[in-house]
Computed example of a mutant assay.
Amino acid sequence: MPSTKSLFSPASGNGPSEQGQVERQIALEYLAEAWNNAEEDGLESAALAHASLFAALATFVRMHGDDATAEMIAQLPDRIRSGEYNLERVLQ
């Protein structure tokens, strides 16, 4: 299997549970491969990001319902501002 760059590599391996972290990392590697393939086929990163967000939110709504998903999304601004989704941040 060819090696692909992962634009989703975490800044840190720390997470709520080791097994959950391993599973999320594997899932991110699958997504990174699909993302890279789509970009190689000419799709723009912004289109991929929008489609990914839609798919993720639709999955959360299906699994947890509208209200729980909305509550989770309401927490995102603070998490984004704190750098949780910044792949270049350095944890000390």
Score class of each variant (00 low, 15 high):
37 N>H: 09
67 D>L: 14
75 Q>R: 13
41 D>F: 10
6 S>E: 00
4 T>W: 07
45 S>L: 04
31 L>R: 06
23 E>L: 11
2 P>K: 06
76 L>C: 05
44 E>F: 04
21 Q>A: 06
60 F>L: 15
14 N>P: 09
22 V>Y: 11
43 L>K: 11
78 D>L: 06
80 I>L: 03
44 E>T: 02
89 R>T: 06
54 F>Q: 15
46 A>C: 11
20 G>A: 03
23 E>H: 08
21 Q>N: 13
34 A>E: 10
70 A>K: 06
89 R>G: 02
41 D>K: 08
73 I>F: 10
52 S>E: 04
51 A>G: 06
83 G>Y: 03
29 E>L: 13
57 L>T: 13
53 L>V: 14
47 A>V: 06
91 L>Y: 14
48 L>R: 00
77 P>K: 01
19 Q>M: 12
92 Q>K: 12
86 N>G: 03
53 L>M: 12
59 T>F: 09
46 A>K: 14
71 E>N: 12
60 F>D: 03
33 E>M: 09
41 D>L: 15
15 G>P: 05
51 A>Q: 08
27 A>R: 08
31 L>Q: 09
41 D>C: 05
79 R>Y: 02
83 G>T: 04
45 S>P: 04
25 Q>A: 15
78 D>T: 07
20 G>C: 01
4 T>M: 13
73 I>E: 02
83 G>C: 05
47 A>M: 10
38 A>C: 09
1 M>C: 10
62 R>T: 10
60 F>S: 15
30 Y>N: 15
39 E>P: 01
88 E>S: 11
6 S>R: 00
51 A>L: 01
76 L>Y: 03
66 D>H: 12
43 L>I: 03
3 S>T: 13
13 G>Y: 02
24 R>N: 07
80 I>Y: 06
17 S>W: 00
10 P>L: 07
16 P>F: 10
21 Q>V: 06
1 M>V: 10
62 R>A: 14
41 D>I: 00
24 R>S: 08
48 L>G: 02
54 F>K: 15
82 S>F: 05
24 R>Q: 08
10 P>A: 13
9 S>C: 01
